[in-house]
Design a protein around this nucleic acid. Structure first.
Lengths: 346, 346
DNA sequence: GGATGCAGTGATAGCATTGTCATATCGGGC
DNA sequence: GCCCGATATGACAATGCTATCACTGCATCC
């Protein structure tokens, strides 16, 4: 009856910092130092503590750590809801892998646009979970209201977008314009002069950039950009098919069509096939993004690929550096895109 | 200099339960009651508190709540790493939506199999983040080591798998066998008697079930199941294509091929096309899962769809019910699958 | 009229960690 | 042998919440 033990009996995996301290014969603060790799702990002490940690299977309690340290070690990923999956798959993989490396957790926040309770959602996200920083893959970087809100809440964020944002922001650039330029040039070099273009959703800044690249390539090679060869699409299969129908109905139909993503290109392929056109004999078709779809279509699609996964990983990494006061961003490598030539082009 | 205020000046979104209590003129415990919808608070008091909450933009701090309440309000989703995306997309959407509804957070844990440090990963996940329960989409339910580990750690889990697990477990069943049975029967009814089958990865129990459904349908209709018409695949495009090549090389090639998923069916389509076969004229092809790919292929693929998203949502919901001591699972609805007939079959 | 019960409320003790600051120890230099 | 500055360690408060239990009224019961 002398003195109740400070903590209850140990249960596997439920050891606390007190148990470790007791086992190692040091104070809890020292355990904390060791566990967090802080300096000023003698090697012998460190070893003792680590041994106790191992024996007790001690794992610091994330909640306590975050409450006490006023750091949540949580990153948020805000993305557009009906998600373009092959893109988000890469974003997700890249972000997760960066988080894992630095022992951050990742919280997902799908957003259906337009979102009337955006503020509500984001506040919940940021205040309640105390999210430290947010990753904004395209097209979230285009939502000025969201950016404003995040700035107002003083939550650092990293964008993956074709748009250059204010300096000092973490901003990994998609080279959409360059990619589109190369792709168009590729077609021109193959002899095409009448090249149709199907734009993407106007709310995505990628759409504008891809179109701009197309225009610039045409201009460079002295091919006039004809408005009648440009159609509006919305990044989905059906709009691609519909736009292709219009283009192919033209008296002087184009000999090649650039769709602003692979899904629309798939639509073009279907429309062409239903008209009995041979591809690439009668019509060359190219897409964007090199989704898994591209290689499974018939014929396999020539497309252009950006290293999305790496870009996301970089964005998350830079963001975490910023959160931890590490050096300003290392010179952003330019993440070159790559044309993947398959059989849908002559 | 009389008495320092108990808390510092308010900053937007940083109000604590003390601030709310002060504003509302009640104790912090009462605020806690209101915020957590606990009973035994007079309506007038409740209103006062809610008003203060609104004015101060108070959001309970998740870390403090979880530390104090010994509940993390976090669910884990463990999935196979190179993810089959269209499947995981549905799983993710369903799980997230269930979590959102009940104000849980979701943590992701991709697992690359085989995983030598599975134990390490899971322990980190479960102990450090204090994950309360885990969702295991197929094929994670097949990893007996993982299940054993979770049981040992006393972490409840919910599986989405064709396999029936021990009673009392949350276990949403995929009707793979039934789906495959229907699909095979569909082909038989269309007159096919020589039906090839490409199995999936033998490590996924779905593979076995899909094959079993095929066999049973053949048997029911008195069509003998010929071993030479069955090939092993691994759920990927290339293995599907290779298996198709073997089947089509047969002296008496099948008139229809069932691939155990859409990606392999896409491989079959490509192989058939390269041999100049007309589809569905010379060969009918069907897949599984109704991925976006299925409707974009040429010809669009007849396939069978299971309501994965709903299944995941249900699994997560049941799991959370269990965690909160709610009634045992309501009679599991049988999540019927549906044959999606497109143009790849006669 | 005193005991009983219960809805409504609050004081206080955790929860498991990190931050702050004080203290102990060490290794030299003289 | 003593002092100094740096290094190493610990005591204790703070974090923001929930759990526990005690307390206050007030209606009900015999």
């Amino acid at each position: 009856m002398a003195e109740a033990p400070k903590r209850g009996k140990l249960q596997k995996g439920k050891a606390t910092i007190f148990d470790v301290a007791e086992q190692a014969g040091v104070s809890i603060k020292t355990v904390s130092r060791v566990v967090n790799n802080e300096p000023n702990v003698r090697q012998r002490t460190r070893d003792k503590v680590l041994e106790a940690v191992g024996r007790l299977q001690y794992r610091p309690n994330a909640a306590a750590r975050s409450l006490s340290g006023r750091r949540s070690w949580v990153l948020g990923l805000i993305y557009e809801n009906p998600l373009e999956f092959s893109y988000m798959k890469d974003v997700l993989n890249g972000t997760l892998s960066a988080c894992e490396e630095r022992e951050y957790s990742l919280l997902l926040r799908p957003l259906t646009l337009p979102s009337p309770d955006l503020v509500e959602h984001i506040e919940r996200f940021v205040i309640q979970a105390r999210v430290e920083g947010v990753i904004l893959p395209a097209p979230m970087g285009d939502l000025s209201e969201l950016l404003r809100l995040l700035r107002e809440m003083k939550v650092p964020f990293a964008t993956i977008t074709p748009k250059t944002l204010a300096a000092g922001q973490v901003n990994v650039l998609c080279e959409d314009r360059e990619a589109s330029f190369s792709l168009t040039e590729f077609l021109i070099n193959r002899g095409h002069r009448s090249i149709g273009f199907i734009k993407g959703d106007p709310d995505h800044s990628a759409s504008g950039n891809r179109f701009a690249g197309y225009q610039q390539a045409l201009e460079k090679h002295g091919v006039s950009c004809m408005e009648r060869l440009v159609r509006q699409g919305y990044f989905d299969f059906d709009s691609g098919k519909a736009a292709a129908a219009e283009l192919l109905d033209l008296p002087e139909a184009p000999t090649a069509i650039i769709a602003s993503n692979d899904d629309m290109a798939a639509g073009v392929l279907l429309e062409a096939r239903q008209r009995g056109l041979s591809i690439p004999g009668d019509l060359s078709v190219v897409g964007f993004d090199d989704t898994p779809l591209a290689s499974r279509l018939w014929p396999p699609l020539t497309t252009v690929r950006q290293p999305i996964r790496e870009m996301a990983e970089t964005a998350a990494g830079l963001l975490m550096n910023k959160l931890n006061g590490k050096a300003a961003q290392p010179p952003k490598e330019p993440f070159a895109c790559e044309i993947v030539i398959r059989e849908s082009t002559t």
